[in-house]
Computed example of a mutant assay.
Amino acid sequence: MTDILRDYSQRFLFEEADIRGEKVLLDKAYWDTLAIHQYAPGVARLMGEFLAAAVLLSNNLKFEGRLTLQARSDGQLPLLMAESNHQLHVRGIARGSEQATANSNEELLSNGQLAITVEPLKGQRYQGIVALQEGSVAHNLDAYFRQSEQLGSRIWLAADGERAGGMLLQQLPAQLVPEPGQRLDQWEHVLTLTDTLRDEEILTLDSATLLGLLYPEEPVRLFDADEVRFQCSCSRKRTHGALSTLHPAELNEMLQEMGRITMDCEFCNTQYHFERTDLAEVLGVDEAKTLH
């Protein structure tokens, strides 16, 4: 299935060990995200890694909702975020990217925090935070896993401005192998094999070929791939809802100055225009009559 999908996420399972994995490749979805903004190469690479990581992490969602991966820093990039939902729709944004010309992670993202936020459509919002350390996005996520996960998890990410991808490995609760020592040996063995993974292999090899290369002696079951695509979750209704949180007097002042209110979506550059009549219910009777 992966040979006909340009953008996919694909699960796999080790048949003789309590370990699962996920392989992600982003092509068009990555391009669609980058096409909206003029990012420098270093920022484009980081965006790709964030998008791939968001997809890998969102595949753990057992409900309808979205996962957001967000970094805030004192570096050249004040904020970088990527989002993936249960349908594997992705989007991302880098704020302050106009002056972000460095190629190193240390210059782009430094002295900040990495937050993973899970927002179910129904239920309670959850957020986990880890300090940004020197090194790759994958290393920072590994640090997050170490402090928040009871079972082992590791992630590998790559992006080159044209394609982005990654792999995730996670230990599963003991079923096939209950003995702790054997479980640890299997986990460390699989990690050692996966640490030989090169960026170009993540970005160019299909899942079956890659798994055969990494684990030639390990029986691995590969599941069907799921399509990933860029799609913004903005809408006129949601934008109207955001305006409704403002005080009517503030909205009226904006309408008097500009004639109508225009809202731009940072993620997809869609513009939403609101006339006074569109906001009559929010403004109230007295404010809506202003200038009439």
Rank of each mutant, 00 (worst) to 15 (best):
T2V: 15
I4A: 05
L5M: 12
Q10F: 12
R11Y: 09
F12S: 00
E16K: 00
D18H: 05
D18Y: 02
R20Q: 14
G21P: 09
E22P: 01
E22F: 15
V24S: 01
L25H: 00
L25Y: 02
K28Y: 13
Y30C: 04
W31N: 04
T33P: 05
A35T: 10
A40R: 08
P41Q: 07
R45G: 10
M47R: 04
A54H: 00
V55T: 00
L61P: 06
F63R: 10
T68V: 13
T68I: 15
Q70E: 13
S73R: 05
L77S: 01
P78E: 03
M81W: 10
S84Y: 10
H86C: 09
Q87L: 15
H89N: 11
I93Q: 08
A94H: 08
G96T: 04
E98T: 02
N105D: 04
N105V: 15
E107P: 01
L108E: 01
A115C: 06
T117C: 10
V118E: 12
E119H: 07
L121N: 11
K122S: 14
Q124F: 11
R125K: 13
Y126K: 02
Y126R: 00
E134Q: 08
G135S: 06
S136K: 10
S136R: 07
V137A: 06
L141T: 03
A143C: 12
Y144K: 03
F145D: 01
R146G: 03
R146W: 09
E149R: 01
Q150E: 10
S153G: 08
D160I: 15
G165M: 13
G165V: 15
G166D: 04
G166C: 06
Q170N: 08
P178T: 15
P178V: 14
P178H: 05
P180V: 11
G181T: 03
T192E: 14
L193A: 14
T194Q: 10
L197W: 09
R198V: 06
E200W: 09
L205Y: 12
D206T: 07
D206R: 01
A208V: 11
L211H: 05
G212D: 11
L213H: 00
P216K: 02
P216S: 03
E217V: 07
E217R: 00
V220R: 00
D224V: 05
V228P: 02
R229A: 13
S235H: 04
K237G: 07
K237S: 15
H240L: 15
S244N: 11
T245A: 15
T245V: 14
L246S: 06
L246V: 03
L246C: 03
H247C: 03
A249T: 13
E250P: 06
L255W: 07
L255D: 07
Q256C: 05
E257F: 02
M258P: 00
D264W: 14
E266A: 11
E266G: 08
F267W: 02
Q271M: 13
Q271F: 14
H273L: 11
F274P: 03
E275L: 11
T277L: 13
A280W: 07
G284D: 08
G284C: 05
V285K: 00
D286P: 01
E287R: 02
